[in-house]
Simulated scan of single mutants.
Amino acid sequence: MDTAPRPVGELTYRDATPADTTALVMLIESAYRGDSSRTGWTTEADILEGQRTDAQGVLDVIEAPGSRLLVVEREGDLIACCQIEHRGEAAYFGMFAVAPGLQGEGLGRRIIAGAERIACETWGVSQMQMTVITVREELIAWYERRGYRRTGKLIPFPYGDERFGIPQRDDLTFELLVKPLV
């Protein structure tokens, strides 16, 4: 078996359309929930069960004013996605998923840099914001290495709303992370 790293080819970004909804739901679910998510390192399977998103949630992001759900493709294959949303002087980064079998190739850092560039070009924003579940220390550390900083601003987890998953612990909360883009 060849274990050499695969070359990371050219990435293309495009806006998602309603026709992409099913494939995007499958990608996001595979990156965060269930056994398939354990192939990568972004899994939330140990802290949340149930769904990460659904078709309506994806469509809402695609159709929301001031929001773009970016489809990331390599050689015509859907390999990742992320949302950017205009919020005044900032853009919000969310719904980030990389196919679990491709995680660890350096795609994530390339994709987030591309999303930051697109947000700056599209809206002229000076800051990117995101929220991350605070118990995801390894993920927060990864974002910190990309220039994001913790703000200490906490946002309650939506307990009882199964659209966001079924919590397996009672200490979940989100923290706002920010990165200056200028």
Rank of each mutant, 00 (worst) to 15 (best):
M128S: 14
A119D: 00
L24C: 07
A91W: 05
V8R: 15
W142H: 10
S30H: 09
A113L: 10
Q83A: 07
E138V: 07
F174H: 10
R6S: 13
A64K: 14
R6C: 09
G124Q: 08
V182K: 11
L59I: 03
G88V: 05
L139M: 09
A55H: 14
Q83D: 11
F164G: 08
V98H: 04
K153E: 11
Y13H: 08
T21G: 09
R136W: 06
G104R: 08
R33F: 04
L78A: 01
D60L: 04
T131H: 15
T42M: 14
I155M: 00
E89W: 02
I112T: 12
D54F: 02
G57L: 06
I133P: 05
E85M: 06
E162D: 10
G124V: 02
L69C: 10
I118E: 15
T151Y: 02
V8F: 09
L139S: 01
T151L: 08
R136L: 13
T22Q: 13
E121W: 06
G108F: 03
R163A: 12
T151R: 00
E63A: 14
R87A: 15
F157A: 02
E85H: 13
R110A: 03
E137M: 12
Y148R: 07
L154W: 02
R6E: 15
P156F: 06
R6Q: 14
E144Y: 01
P156K: 01
P158A: 04
P5G: 06
A113E: 14
R38W: 07
Q168H: 02
E10A: 15
G57R: 07
I28A: 12
I62L: 11
S30L: 00
A115I: 12
M1W: 12
P65W: 11
R109D: 11
T42H: 12
E105Q: 14
R110C: 03
E73L: 12
L139C: 06
Y32M: 04
D35M: 05
T134Q: 15
R149S: 14
D170E: 13
A16V: 05
D161I: 01
T173F: 00
G40T: 03
R163K: 13
G114C: 10
E121R: 09
L177I: 00
D2G: 14
A91G: 13
V58I: 13
I47K: 04
E121F: 03
F157E: 04
R163F: 03
V182L: 07
P167M: 02
Q168T: 12
E116T: 07
S30N: 08
I111K: 13
R163T: 12
V25Y: 02
M128Y: 02
V61Y: 01
F164K: 11
